[in-house]
Amino acid sequence: MTALITGSMAYDTIMVFHDHFKNHILPDQVHILNVAFLVPELRREFGGCAGNIAYNLKLLEKAPLPMATVGKDFGPYREWLSRLGIDQRYLREIDDAYTAQAYITTDLADNQITAFHPGAMSRAHLNQVPQDSDIRIGIVAPDGRDGMIEHAEQFHRSGIPFIFDPGQGTPMFEGKELLRFIELATWAIFNDYEAKLVQEKTRLTPELISDDVDAVVVTKGAEGSVVYIDREPIKISPAKPTAVTDPTGCGDAYRAGAIYGLLEGYDWETVGAIASLMGAIKVESAGTQNHTFTMEGFRERFYDNFGYHL
């Protein structure tokens, strides 16, 4: 009983500038911008939506199958996945490309300047949803544009229910393309901003989208989330983190929780609660794949937050 996770695998290089960007960027000179920031803090994290979701699903003791295109520099990430025991059979290495990577510089006000190189991710369409694995559920997470379109069609043709999760890839698609994703998908998950962008492009609110899928989830950060089923909202309370350290990757952790709940056959109130707790656990740690827990500890925290046992 497993899940196929289509999406990106990426390196995140995160640098911290010990000042404020605004002190070094002159507003009236942005047309000739030429700045350099000294960044004494630097860390390289394993990331990408498929990698992050797979990591979180493995913590929940499931057997994720990430499917992505990666580059010639993937060796360290591959070793990390091997140590975790995550199946890599659907990771295709592209010899003449680098793995997708983001270079993120953050100042003391948490403003960010990011450069993203898609690299091998742009060839995600070379992968195809397999027909011969015991795949119970899938997700189309942010990836190469053509790959996302083709994988949604392949999930549908294969009869595999899947989550449509456009994430930061939402701006790549026109209204007609988003409507096609919604037509094919079984469920959809957006954050609040993405839901508004989808509505702007399709003229469909989450309530209306719920006419075409089994459930629409809209996450609202620290305010929790809302699940729409047949236009009726189900409010999911946020779980309580012990600390707020780094929100990066919380959305992927939430989606892994949703996949786990769906695989286990829980109702959407419980699916949303599991997902909420996954996001809370992630926010307590820096980076996207550094948090950990035992299932016993997870169930205890679930009871503490929601008042009933899984």
Rank of each mutant, 00 (worst) to 15 (best):
S210N: 10
D214N: 12
E174A: 14
K176C: 10
N23S: 06
K240H: 03
D87K: 04
S133V: 15
P171T: 05
D110A: 13
E232F: 12
F37K: 10
F293L: 01
G159P: 15
S225M: 12
L108I: 07
F37P: 15
E93W: 01
Y193T: 04
R83C: 15
R89C: 13
E232A: 10
V218F: 14
T2D: 13
T270C: 09
G85S: 12
L33G: 03
D192N: 14
T186V: 07
E153W: 05
A273G: 03
V216K: 07
F37H: 12
S285T: 07
P247G: 02
A152M: 06
P166D: 02
H20G: 11
E207D: 14
N34Y: 10
S285I: 02
I104Q: 09
Y90R: 09
P130T: 03
D146Q: 07
A280R: 02
Q29F: 11
T6I: 13
E41K: 04
T105A: 05
T219M: 05
I139H: 06
S237M: 15
F190T: 00
V39H: 00
K62N: 09
F173Y: 06
L263C: 03
L263A: 04
H309L: 12
A280P: 01
H151C: 13
H20K: 11
D267A: 04
M172C: 07
G279L: 06
N34K: 14
G51V: 02
G167V: 06
F306S: 00
N111R: 11
L91G: 06
G138D: 10
M67W: 14
L84F: 11
E194T: 04
I113S: 09
N34F: 03
T270I: 14
G138V: 12
H117D: 15
I53D: 05
D304S: 14
E300Y: 10
